[in-house]
Design a binder for these strands. Structure first.
Lengths: 344, 344
DNA sequence: CTGAAAGCGCTTACAG
DNA sequence: CTGAAAGCGCTTACAG
């Protein structure tokens, strides 16, 4: 163990590798042309010293701030905290720090908070969480300020910026097929809030899967919800108090699915024995209630990583024509099979 | 508006105030003796220039790191994210950054993560969230490393370090009295997980309030739970399937309270009409389900602020004899009245 | 492809 | 009570 009692510096690495600090710096930032031989020497030296660059020194000396901003609108959204935790971790691994701001209030205030984040903290890039990422004025401001940004699961205007998301349509399609595979043919669906693009996609995925399987969907098996537990309660009652009941209900999110379970219980329709229920999102609620919900896990950690990656790899600062990839970064979801579905 | 296009530095302030950088630095850190007159001059200059010290420069030059560590064990605990968000904000206001680490795994690994946080990131202080804050080996390590730390809601060993908490006993006492005020006399109680100090305190608060009101608590009105939804389900069934039923149930946390609501529904005992239910913690679940739960709000934001304050104000680095205050910092809770209690 | 010099914005010792 | 000097660990020009 070459244990260094005190943290090693770029100078130590330079000495050990027999080069100048400058060369070490170049290798570390792998931006300049360094001969493969010296590059290797430096890397070996850095590794053996367990060298980690001092972020503060870097920040002070360079034009980059090594800060990434994260803007969200509503902290109570389930994914905010999970996203935050993952983003924090990714940033740290890359020698960046995350600066987090809540963006609430009037349109004016939102713009001001965004502007402050850029001008005062001088962030190198910004991540915008939904629904904030759909605010076009904010996007325009960021463009004007020339700061790269990545949106997470935007609803529309997909052509204006890079974004990360999951395939809501495919997930709903797969989930529906899962129910069909388990022998269900009468499947009810509770639609999400009408203003959100994700609602439409999930609904469409459900419909297409049913059609592919040649299964009919009577109008009474579709209810409009708002994503809230309460709206799920209402929708479930409407659907379950009729004579012809579905054997399974697919709710567009977990809160509504939990409401379905609750209504089913009060109607003496135990889940999953008498009624199968599935949700979407895999919020903590899905594994709080009993039975645990079969649902779709949003790949939030991976989305956070990807977003940080895009912002720290520097590819977004290139002129659009030179960028590697297209704007859309779709991350794989996961179907979480748990205890709320019965095999018929 | 003395709008400075470019950020002002300590040098600018010094110039404007007609003193040296050194003097400005002293005023900013208010540690040395500076004459009131020059202090004022400097402060005025700094204010008019809208001066904010550059953290990175500070960090690089000084022995302090301006980092605070936050260690937690289980990210899914409801309060972790809320605490995190609040701590992030407080740190930023004070020119600090928060470094967050999950501390899971074997005892060995936990110790290693803690050690790395201190030795590599060189944090100026550490915040320990429950239940991690009850790990005595970690506390010993921190002592050995001579890093100040603050524990949040520790269960025991209250004499070894400063900590922030709320008064669980009083909160349970108040909540019970609230039910009594609403005319309830048959009140059931679901105890929390037996290993946690908070469970005992809440239970005791309930018992004492009942006794003060001269109200009897039949053994069948007390059920042991584990804080999980599932354990609440079981407890509620036991309590509600008897002939003699309580008119209100006080569950030691929101998850179990939600379970009570669920069981009540399935037994055709609508909440609050036929049964009142109250919880504890005010997790998101409390306002997800219907009816929204009357519960106790933990003052998480204030706890985070207080913890950061203790760590950044420097009072913890003084020898124990010179410290201002005692170890215990109790923050006020709030009784959130919502829709799950009926006035009899 | 590589290096010597200067400087980022602060603070730490050392003087006075 | 106040200041001139040196230095924290990097990167940005500028040379070669």
């Amino acid at each position: 163990m070459a244990s260094a009692k005190t943290k090693s510096t770029i100078q130590d690495v330079a000495q050990l590798a027999g080069v100048s600090k400058m060369t070490v710096s170049r290798v570390l930032n792998n931006d300049a042309k360094v001969s493969d031989k010296t590059r290797e020497k430096v890397q070996k030296a850095a590794a053996s010293l367990n060298y980690l660059p001092n972020i503060s020194a870097r920040r002070l000396a360079s034009s980059k701030s090594y800060f990434i901003g994260l803007l969200y609108e509503n902290p109570s959204e389930g994914y905010v905290s999970q996203f935050l935790l993952s983003a924090l971790k990714s940033c740290r691994q890359r020698g960046y720090h995350l600066v987090v701001d809540e963006c609430q209030g009037s349109e004016q205030e939102k713009l001001q908070i965004t502007r402050d984040l850029v001008e005062q903290t001088r962030v190198d890039g910004v991540i915008l969480l939904p629904p904030f990422c759909n605010n076009l004025q904010v996007l325009a401001l960021l463009d004007e300020l020339k700061v790269p940004y990545v949106r997470v699961s935007p609803d529309a205007n997909l052509e204006v910026s890079p974004f990360v998301c999951m395939d809501d349509y495919q997930a709903a399609f797969d989930m529906t097929n899962h129910l069909i595979d388990q022998g269900h043919q009468q499947i009810g669906f509770i639609v999400g809030h009408q203003n959100l693009g994700a609602s439409r996609l999930r609904y469409q995925g459900f419909l297409d899967a049913m059609r592919s399987a040649q299964l009919a969907v009577p109008p009474s098996f579709i209810e409009q919800g708002q994503f809230s537990f309460k709206s799920g309660l209402q929708a479930a009652e409407n659907m379950l108090k009729q004579d012809l009941r579905p054997t399974a209900i697919f709710a567009s999110n977990d809160d509504m699915a939990a409401a379905v379970v609750s209504v089913a219980n009060s109607l003496s329709l135990p889940v999953p024995e008498k009624l199968s229920v599935v949700g979407f999102d895999d919020t903590p609620l899905a594994t709080t209630i009993w039975p645990h919900l079969t649902t779709i896990r949003q790949p939030i950690t991976e989305m956070a990583e990807q977003a940080i990656d895009l912002l720290t790899s520097g590819q977004l600062t290139l002129p659009p024509s030179q960028r590697l990839s297209d704007l859309r970064h779709v991350i794989e979801f996961q179907l979480m099979q748990r205890d709320s579905v019965k095999h018929l």
